[in-house]
Nucleic acid binder design. Sequence first.
DNA 1: ATGTCACTTTACAAGTGA
Length: 264
Amino acid sequence: MKVITWNVNSVRQRGPRLLALLARHAPDVVCLQETKVEDADFPGADILEAGYHSVAFGQRAYNGVAILAREPLSDVRLGFRGDPVPGEARVLAATVGDLRVIDVYVVNGKGVGDPAYEVKLAWLDALADHLAATEDASRPIVVTGDFNVAPTDLDVHDPQLWAGKNLASAPERERLQRLLDWGLMDLGRAHAGDQAGPFTWWDYRMGAFHRGWGLRIDLMLGSAAVAERLVSVEVDREERKPTSGEGKPSDHAPVILTLRDQPS
DNA sequence: ATGTCACTTTACAAGTGA
């Protein structure tokens, strides 16, 4: 079974590349972030034609999440109680087969000391509270998406440069750890071991991708029932190249989780 | 570190969020 997460930075701009991704990897589940469209404009018909059901939770211009799946999606939940920014479409949960899928687009935070950074910390706390209150960590769960947090210095191309900065600061890493303490494993790190990266996001500016200036902020977190089925977590770096596919790339690369099939 | 991109608008260039 394959689960993909991808911050598309506008699903309208990334339409052809999204359909190509579905054809290339034939995933079972895809979580998208930063779709940037209201639900009426979400390309659900094109996605259905490609063989995928979908649920979208979007808004105009900003944020927006969606889950695609070969199998029907059930127990869909939009947003979460206690969200410090309830007007922003950032969390979508659905059940696919035996798997509970929670798609998240974490508040960016702008910079340490910015009011948005305090919102980010509160938001991560609220999400951890919500999961503990509403989900069962003993079941197969994947919490995935753009966390806007590089969990450790292994997840940063230049730890000295990023030390204490937004996306890599200790307070946000502590909040992420709270989430893990509830009963999740960072599957990407489990697969990569003590190797740096693999990175999933590179700034559009300064030729950052070409220079290897990346961060691992798009994460696959899994409960124990998922972690025991872990085969691999890989980054589709090709998708980040300007030359691959139709139109421009997102600033994030897709992350592909592969799980062993359930013994039946 | 900031050489870009996508979005929006008493729009046709400039601010914003990332």
